[in-house]
Design a protein around this nucleic acid. Sequence first.
DNA 1: CTACCTCATGGAAACGCTTCCACAACATGC
DNA 2: GCATGTTGTGGAAGCGTTTCCATGAGGTAG
Lengths: 341, 341
Amino acid sequence: MLAHMHPTIKDIAERAGVGLGTVSRVLNDNPRVSETTREKVMGAVRDLNYVPSLAARGLSLGKTQSIAVIAPFFTRSVFVERLHGIEETTSANGYDVVIYNVDATEKRDRYFRTVPDPRRVDGVIVISLPPSTPDVAHFQRSSVPIVFVDVGSPLCEPFDRIVINDVEGGRMATQHLIDLGHRRIGYLGDIPQAGFNFTAGEDRFEGYRRALAGAGIAVHPEYHLDGRFGREVARTLARRMLGLAERPTAIFASNDTQALGVLEAARDLGLDVPGDLSVVGYDDIEMADFLGLTTVRQLLFESGRRSVEALLRRLGEPEGVPICDSLPVELIVRRTTAPPR
Amino acid sequence: MLAHMHPTIKDIAERAGVGLGTVSRVLNDNPRVSETTREKVMGAVRDLNYVPSLAARGLSLGKTQSIAVIAPFFTRSVFVERLHGIEETTSANGYDVVIYNVDATEKRDRYFRTVPDPRRVDGVIVISLPPSTPDVAHFQRSSVPIVFVDVGSPLCEPFDRIVINDVEGGRMATQHLIDLGHRRIGYLGDIPQAGFNFTAGEDRFEGYRRALAGAGIAVHPEYHLDGRFGREVARTLARRMLGLAERPTAIFASNDTQALGVLEAARDLGLDVPGDLSVVGYDDIEMADFLGLTTVRQLLFESGRRSVEALLRRLGEPEGVPICDSLPVELIVRRTTAPPR
DNA sequence: CTACCTCATGGAAACGCTTCCACAACATGC
DNA sequence: GCATGTTGTGGAAGCGTTTCCATGAGGTAG
């Protein structure tokens, strides 16, 4: 017995003594089927353990029941959390998630060109990767709905997007330090990784700049350093900044990982945190809680969830003005910030 | 102009002035095509910007060019790292990765039943989730190759698998403490999350047990506590263990996250690490390095890479004895272990 | 009793690909 | 000169769905 073979609607039709169309109608809840035949068919479906072929349905319908996620460095907690929200919402709605990890600009370009294909996926979520003008033109030609998460670029305005108010987050972090009485406040950012043009860093810096301006504090160029993402680089840079004759009494790092580097640098130099140095991070990754790091929390999981919802909405309603969903940020004050001595 | 429509091989055939079969042959590098027609076809492919339909090819060939990963709690760093290795290797070989995150046993059961379907994916990688006997029967009936990663269960022997020598890892960690002169060594494990039957914890405990036995140290029941995965629970349990009249001078936690909880407990109780208490973790997640946590490193990324390689091998060679690839573990000594006072 | 709807149903066509079979054109061996 | 390859090619069949169209059965109204 070919018990392991997969039955097709033809097998079901034969066993139930009905036609192919009828089986398909039953499976798709078409009301134009009598109750008795419906039951006969459902019986055969159970008997033969029928499972429809997604590929065949996809071919016939032009739908794949799967959505693609294009994200950079998906091992970083920030992306993992977003992906988590995406996965949960997607699976709850009967879609599959296909992940495309971008660890080099060539991969991004390749995925941007090949993934948004209606025969491949029903929708695409792009995280933190701003497209170029040709990319946008290509996306618009494609009939696949695209949602951008955490991409501030104005080029994305024709598409649905979930944005984070990073300017506000940067402002809040900096204002917190100002409110504590700090005047010499350093900023440690990550360098827009060659060609990636992440915008979050710049926005957070803009918030920092505005907060200082609002308090009438001049931006001291030596208090602003950027480096490649990662703890080690941040540690080195922070050490340099803390070695200045008139060193800052507080440092705002544009993400928690770099904030850890700052903490290490402080430890290296024998500086007490928060006594000699206040430190604020950004993202509120798990480690931040463990270390008592003051930071700015963003709704990562939620951003993933909403991106899927936006996609599903767009699938039902292809036309219509693009929505822009802005997520709030929140300052989480812990033990690495205090008034300066 | 329907410039945005996707051309089919029929369009290519017409434009190149050849038949459908010829186009297909060119696209599949069939040698039975003359050089001149091959060039004509390739020209048409470029002109029309042809991209083949995966669904159609899949339907015709019974292949999908995608592999599934079924993993529990994929936000935990351990799984993220493994997934990273999987994604990288998979994309390098022209396959797509579809992720199925298991956060409840029902989801695991559902995925186990529905995902290993040759019409859905070409292969399946299961991480840390031991199957039941009926599951195994179902997997064997299915024609989809399956690779298990980090599943010690003997039920998996009919399948390819990548295993981690967790017994040895547990032994190494414990032996390290014994070598330092500790005799009162606690063990903090994670509870086999209701129904999941993760085996790693038990194996690590077994290693702990053997190391003690080898040194002629009796296992003290009060020095062994298990709790749900997570820092907070571990913190509570560790506090309990450290509150004993004769408290342990060292604790081996079965994973780094729980080791963090132990560190917190020590902090709570004003115990100096490693002066009053030595702590060893397991996994070597990023935080371990930051905190100077002594731990056991396993090759997470590598385990992902190898699982894909095993799958690809199996796709080329469906029959043949299942391979069992055992990955080494390594003790990383940092600053949380020292001889007892 | 006839004309006309409605409802349930069967099956062909279409989706875009691969593969197999048939055939034509030409070369080879005796 | 004829059988016998060999090579390149075209196109039909098949993969498993959905959908559209045709049909027959039964119901209702005149």
